[in-house]
Structure formats: C-alpha cells, structure tokens
Amino acid sequence: MVQVNRRTFVIGGAAIAAAAVGAGVALWRPGRNAARDGAAVLAMVLPDADGREQALAQWRGKVLVVNFWATWCAPCREEMPQFVAAQARDGAKGVQFVGIAVDDVDKVRVFARELGLNYPTLIGGYGAIELSRTLGNDLAALPFTIVLDRQGRVVHTQLGPLKAARLDSLLADLAGAG
C-alpha cells in the first residue's frame, strides 16, 4: 500500500501552492508514492466460467477495472449492475471490467445469468482472497476493486462499493486520457 508519512504530508501541504503552479499534475507518473505498478494484476491467470484459462494481460492497454466479488457478498452484488452499465457505455472507449469471483463456478453462472453480466468473470475460489491481499486488500474483505490505466498502472483501489459518481469520474479521466 502507499504509505505517506506525517513529515511528507507536512512538506506536501506546504508545497501544494507551489506545486499547483510549477509541477501540476504532470508529476503523476509511476514513482515511489504515485501510481503503483499493476504488473501483479496483469500477471494473474485464472479460469473463466467455462474452465478456460484467461490471462489478465490480454486486456493490457485498456482501462481495466478488476473487481473481486462473490455471490455470498450482498454489497458486491448490489454494485455490479453499475459495472454492467459502465461496461456497455464505455466498452467501446477501451474500458474493460473483469470480475474475479471468490466463489464456486455454479453460483457464479447462476448469478451472471440473472444479472446479464456483460464482462468476463474469472473463478478464483477462496484462493482469490489471498491473491487480493497481495494486491492491497489487507482486510481480505469484498468487494475489492482495482482500476488500472492504459499503461497498466494502479490508479485506484477500493475496498467496499465503488460509488457511481467516483467510478464515472475515474472512467471519464482514464478512458478520455487515452
């Protein structure tokens, strides 16, 4: 996880005005404390609901939204319709949602059908929880969502539901910036 110590914050606070003029947001680039490398996300390979292995690297270059979820997680199910809507709306702009289900394939199939899921969801089982821990999900809770930009950098991680306004502004920034 990104750690910003107290001293850094103090310096950062003092520098905000100067930085706004001088450095601006152009300094947003892979670096020590800025966006993290998403290589670990893109390195994942998991089976889909039909048992075929899928590498997340196949979506390199897209704005990738990776959502860890489960049918036993009501908040997960509640936020997924907005992912379906965003995939339909922004898919042509290079936005790709990918679910990783901490669940059994049978339950995933039933739920995907009920929801009309329009993006792939891979089957991680309970092992996917450990996987999500290595990606910053310290509490191992769901839903957990990671957003990668087109360069494969982690620009947002979210434990708990991703609010619609937040998701929309992220996608507008990232899909528009490409």
Binding site: G12, G22, L27, W28, R32, N33, A34, A35, T157
Partner: peptide
Amino acid sequence: RYAALALAVAGAQAHAQLFAPGEP
C-alpha cells in the same frame, strides 16, 4: 529543487486517490 516537494504532493494525491475519504 522542487522535485522532492512535488513528489510529496503527488504522494499525497496518490494517497487521496487510492484511499477515497468515503472508504470505511
């Protein structure tokens, strides 16, 4: 000379970005 300061700002921004205030 401002690089370190600016990086700190970027860090703070990254922090805000990665951990939204609404996150429980």
